[in-house]
Amino acid sequence: MATTTVTRENVEAKVVEAIAELGPDIEQVTPDATFESLDVDSLDLVELTQVVEEEFGVVIPNEAAAKLTTVGDAIEYVVAHGS
């Protein structure tokens, strides 16, 4: 399956969209928003990693996912690990 090129814009757009689909209002999904404040839990984060892997080919292992606390953290991780 073809993946999308990793650019900051693409990643931010996709991550924000994916998190909003999990439940929070999209206006609240800003880079500095914490997952806790958005009521995004560990199961939600697994779903997010699946979306990210399918879209960008970037794998976020469980240990790394556990350290992400904000939306921005997730965006940064993908940008840093996407080639």
């Binding site: 199961l43 697994v46 779903e47 699946q50 892997e53 399918e54």
Partner: peptide, 9 residues
């Protein structure tokens, strides 16, 4: 889509 895509839910 394979086992890796099955939802954690």
């Amino acid at each position: 889509r394979g086992p890796g895509r099955v939802s954690p839910l």
